[in-house]
Design a protein around this nucleic acid. Sequence first.
DNA 1: AGTATTTGCTCAGCAGGCTTACTATTTGCT
DNA 2: AGCAAATAGTAAGCCTGCTGAGCAAATACT
Lengths: 137, 137
Amino acid sequence: MAEWPTGRLLSTASRLVEHAWLEALDELGLSHAGLIALHLLGEEPTNQTDLAARARVENQTMSRTLDRLEREGYIARERDARDRRRHIITRTAAGAAAWESARTLEADVFPEIADPQGLRNSLLELIHAGTARRWQP
Amino acid sequence: MAEWPTGRLLSTASRLVEHAWLEALDELGLSHAGLIALHLLGEEPTNQTDLAARARVENQTMSRTLDRLEREGYIARERDARDRRRHIITRTAAGAAAWESARTLEADVFPEIADPQGLRNSLLELIHAGTARRWQP
DNA sequence: AGTATTTGCTCAGCAGGCTTACTATTTGCT
DNA sequence: AGCAAATAGTAAGCCTGCTGAGCAAATACT
């Protein structure tokens, strides 16, 4: 496996790491995608396209993630009166509470490694490169 | 984004990086999962459970990936005469050819970063940790 | 020998990525 | 004012992960 291309190591590591907190999140009735959306939403209501861009996912993906959050009662959608194409998303009390309890989970669950800061830097570099290709044409 | 938990950076980076080669692979009629399977298969026919374990995915996932490779004519399944529960997977000529042309693609497409070796080491650490939890109970 | 457990694989169903295609609204240009 | 282009969101369909269930073959135990 030491000979695998780096990209493959990356996706494998990503999948394996994700398992750990999925179990934990499950108990809160949240998914990883949902947690990210709640996090990005914060206390500032905003629209779906904005959330999608900040999460680096396509619009349609965010739409479905929000469907589920809405179904679970963690967010509410409401048409923007000013621009009626838009949906304004707001966190419900339940959503805020769920987010609050999941707040530190991602960090807590992440395995200890030798050079966490180096890893973060590399990942940020990669995200930067990938973002340039997709989100700033 | 510099404040995102490392796990989230990891999955985001993974997704973004994967895009680059998905486009390239698409022209060969291969998917990333399929490429991994072909790679692991190599020239040695083997069974599905073995492939799944080495790819670090569940059995069922590998089963479906092989379904598609079989449909496209890149692999062949055949029952093992010795142990009739098993399916022996072999690469077809087309499969070997496809793999050969995709061989270096993953590496070629990967963005340049400051410390590639450091990244690889961190990822291997993470995979090691994650593997321990799931594949060696 | 006969039953119970384990093993290899498939099926069904869900989530989260993606693309392509569509509707509704807004904006912008003539 | 009116029409074309851009934007916000949804729908449908594909792939790849996962879990949970189930079947058939092989192995282990009594």
